[in-house]
Amino acid sequence: MKSAQKKIIGAALLSLALPLTAQATGTLQNDYVLAGVSDYGTLGSNKTVSPGILFDPTGSSIYGINDFLTPGTPLEGFFITSSAGNYQSNNTGHGSNSFVGFTIDQISSTVVSASASSLDGVLGVSNLYSLTTIGGRSAIEITTTLTNNTASVLTSLNFLRTLDPDPDVNAYSVYDTTNVTLSDDQACATGARTGQTICAFTAATYRHKAGVSASWATNPATYLAGTNSGNGDYTIGIGFDLGDLAAGDSLTLTYGYALGETLDIASGGSTGGGAIPEPSSPLLIATGLLGLAAIRRFKRKQR
């Protein structure tokens, strides 16, 4: 957890003059967003190395120092509970990360995939990251595929994606954000000084619930039960109830993070959760390629 003693990241880590591909396992970049993909299969360039998630609202590729992710004690990752056990991966590599040795594929400047199996061999995970922009609302869209590698059904499968946003730290040394849960589909955090906002969003058909957690909850059940802690140095995220996954089957869910210079822009201008950006062409192509490969190996299960 964070404390008052957290240090601001040094200028050397924030310099954008250095080759970013040398700092990150994978890099997502367009005119609005610059983000790393870590070798833990999450967003971020591993721990406090920049870029975590940087945003330029002008679309001029001048991202500045207001990193949403890297200040202090970064947290961006996914957490899974099931009848076979619990699994997690986060960008700091701290704790009992259950997936190691992610295979990173830099498909294009705006599309990166990260795939691995759990240490116990039970669960395969693949995260496909894609940048897309609609007007002033930029998004990091994430398509996650989970595969049951065992000969038994995985029951009570739940999934959580969560982030601790800190857009005001590098410029103003302020960790607290103004947080709001707009609907089951979307929760947002805004820097009170910069106004920069990031929203966790989804249009998935699985039962899900977005929220804000003061305790930095890592159990999907906490979000699924409803958590809305208000303003502070808290996390935002979305919990998913995925049900059962048969032996050898896979399932896919899509969600992501939307960014904007204000809450209204980042949320899509709707207190009901906003419109979800359409997938970009690179994402559609990459998803098709991954799907063809998966069909050869697995019987797919879609909802």
Rank of each mutant, 00 (worst) to 15 (best):
T190L: 01
T190N: 04
T190W: 02
T190S: 08
T190V: 14
G191N: 12
G191H: 11
G191T: 05
A192Q: 12
A192R: 09
A192M: 01
R193K: 09
R193S: 11
R193T: 00
T194M: 12
T194N: 15
T194K: 10
T194D: 13
T194P: 05
T194A: 15
T194F: 08
G195S: 11
G195V: 02
G195M: 08
G195Q: 10
G195D: 10
Q196Y: 14
Q196C: 10
Q196V: 09
T197K: 07
T197Q: 09
T197D: 13
I198R: 09
I198F: 14
I198T: 12
I198A: 15
C199Y: 01
C199I: 13
A200S: 15
A200I: 10
A200N: 03
A200L: 11
A200P: 00
A200K: 00
A200Q: 07
F201T: 08
F201A: 11
F201N: 01
F201V: 15
T202C: 07
T202F: 00
T202G: 03
T202N: 05
A203N: 13
A203M: 07
A203Y: 07
A203W: 02
A204N: 03
A204K: 04
A204C: 06
A204T: 07
A204I: 02
A204E: 04
T205K: 12
T205C: 09
T205Y: 14
Y206M: 07
Y206W: 09
R207Y: 04
R207D: 07
H208M: 05
H208Q: 14
K209L: 14
K209P: 03
K209E: 08
A210H: 07
A210R: 08
G211I: 00
G211E: 08
G211Y: 06
V212D: 00
S213E: 01
A214Y: 06
A214W: 08
A214L: 07
S215N: 15
S215F: 13
S215G: 06
S215P: 02
S215Y: 11
S215E: 13
W216L: 12
W216Y: 13
W216T: 04
W216N: 12
W216M: 14
A217T: 00
A217D: 01
T218Q: 09
T218H: 10
T218A: 12
N219R: 04
N219D: 14
N219S: 14
N219G: 03
P220R: 00
A221P: 00
T222R: 14
T222G: 03
T222L: 05
T222E: 14
T222K: 06
